[in-house]
Nucleic acid binder design. Structure first.
Length: 226
DNA sequence: GCGACAG
DNA sequence: ATCTTGTCGC
């Protein structure tokens, strides 16, 4: 797929924050998602701090049936240190390389990290969405910011994630009794629709099928690069 | 000043 | 993220 927008490569933390403050205004919180999502692409990365390598994976699935349509992985050098709130600058370069390698443009992107549920309302999912111009959802495994009540134990139960008086996401139980995931808007999709999509993508496990597949792929790519 | 802190 | 054994539960 084509990615027109160039991704900024900051050299300092201050520079990275400045970029986020600028790009945050480009996030589209409206529901621009196609009524019928046909394909969904999952994104994830794996690290090898020892060798300073990062592997990224982009895997596209049919929304109904979860059949794998396309998959790409890329291994490159780590270019930015881990900094809470700024890891989009670590993961975005390889993720975009993987996305660019895809032949077809998907209807939706699912990231393993937060979107608006971020200190400056511009987490990885927002960054990915803005740069690609595609609808994007952030699905985090742990809380980053915000407060929330515990959702009911049944699959589908959800409670709002609130930060500074603003609803920045939802805490969603994707399977009965499992630890909930943190869903937030990345770009061009409403929180409600994002939750619906995430639940649809979690037919049997806590995490979306897209994320599970991408996780395996980039992990394998890292091993095979030995 | 003291914790907390996505992956 | 990654390092890691056994172990509780279905």
């Amino acid at each position: 797929m084509d990615i027109v927008t160039a991704h900024d490569r900051p050299n300092t933390v201050a520079e990275a924050i400045e970029i986020q403050e600028t790009l945050r205004g480009l996030v589209d919180r409206g529901d621009r998602c196609p009524q019928e999502i046909v394909t969904v692409t999952g994104l994830d990365v794996a690290y090898d701090e020892e060798r300073g390598l990062i592997a990224a994976a982009a895997v596209t699935l049919e929304a109904s049936g979860f059949r794998v349509v396309e998959k790409r992985t890329v291994v490159s050098g780590i270019s930015f240190p881990y900094e809470p709130g700024l890891f989009a600058f670590r993961e975005l370069p390889p993720l975009l390389d993987a996305l660019r390698a895809l032949e077809h443009t998907p209807d939706l992107l699912v990231c393993d990290g937060h979107g608006l549920a971020h200190p400056r309302r511009f987490g990885l999912a927002c960054h990915v969405g803005v740069v690609t111009g595609l609808p994007a959802i952030g699905v985090g495994k742990t809380r980053f910011i915000g407060e929330h009540d515990e959702p009911g134990r049944e699959r589908g139960a959800r409670t709002p994630l609130v930060d500074d008086g603003e609803v920045v996401g939802a805490v969603v139980r994707t399977q009965d009794g499992v630890k909930p995931v943190y869903v937030s808007v990345g770009h061009k999709i409403s929180l409600d629709n994002a939750c619906r999509q995430v639940l649809r993508l979690c037919p049997a496990f806590r995490q979306p099928e897209t994320t599970r597949l991408a996780d395996r792929l980039c992990r394998d790519a890292l091993k095979e690069s030995l």
